[in-house]
Nucleic acid binder design. Structure first.
Lengths: 147, 147
DNA sequence: TATAGTTGTAACAAATATTATTACAACAAG
DNA sequence: CTTGTTGTAATAATATTTGTTACAACTATA
């Protein structure tokens, strides 16, 4: 299955915060309207980003902001924050393979190292892109649109 | 979400075919017993591997076999064959972002290239590992187990 | 100190995806 | 023609994701 939309929504949210923080108060309602999702979904997601030290959310009067330098936040940080994959493992195994079969009882030890290597390649690439890069891309796209 | 267990099950199945083809007739029941899954799940999976030209399945009298050189089958071939991700896209987007928001209406053009680059890194790594490598790993693990 | 607007979170509902099961026609080989 | 098997449809069970409702906790301000 695909990686949860929570990840792309989180990136969307970060772009929005950066893009509109001067003009608007960044409430969960405002963000939800750009994403076209439920405000509670956005609030839960902001809580995850907050736990990861990426955003600050003000209770009561409201408003979210990014609390780290944009080029110190990588796509991997966001990906990790929103817990797209169970237990940090990208690949899912079928439960309870047959312990009486030599392949069944060893399937994890056979595959784990290779799969981890593949997962590392994905994560390395995610670590090489920052939210600053993404915000730059965003500004370029929005500017080009107006031509 | 994690990548469907169909992928690891498919690899498991290929290892089993290679490991036991001399001793056993490779029926869906035999494979299902090693994986500990339903035989129909295995048959559907074998159909997908067959469509991809990886295995041959004999109807009637029964039996599956790998119909390609093991080092000509990469993990990516298997991954693609079992269609773990919707439409070949690893990352899922929330549907219908707000077209009235500059970020909402451009989110795909903003992110697509970066996400594709990340996906490519994953796929490249998958292409670098063959079923022959995995079968070698498997034989080593099973041999070590007996020490 | 009300009031208005907001977050944080629980509880629940709906939608979607995955995996399992049952059933049976089509087939191959003795 | 019997036995064992595949191919596949239909359906069910389970799990996961996403959405919704509700409301207490909180902040700022009139």
């Amino acid at each position: 299955m695909q990686i949860s939309s929570r990840f792309t929504i989180a990136v969307h949210v970060l772009i929005c915060i950066e893009t509109f923080k001067e003009e608007h108060k960044i409430t969960s309602d405002f963000l939800a309207s750009s994403v076209n999702a439920n405000p509670v979904i956005i609030r839960k997601l902001l809580q995850q980003l907050k736990k990861a030290g990426i955003v600050a959310v003000i209770r009561g009067s409201g408003g979210a902001d990014i609390c780290k330098s944009l080029d110190a936040i990588t796509l991997f940080d966001v990906y990790e924050a929103v817990e797209c994959v169970e237990d940090g493992k990208l690949f899912h195994f079928h439960e309870n393979p047959n312990p009486l079969c030599p392949v069944g009882r060893n399937i994890h030890s056979i595959l784990d190292a290779r799969l981890e290597q593949i997962q590392m390649a994905l994560e390395k690439e995610m670590k090489s892109v920052t939210i600053q890069d993404i915000v730059n891309d965003s500004q370029k796209m929005i500017a080009e649109e107006k031509v």
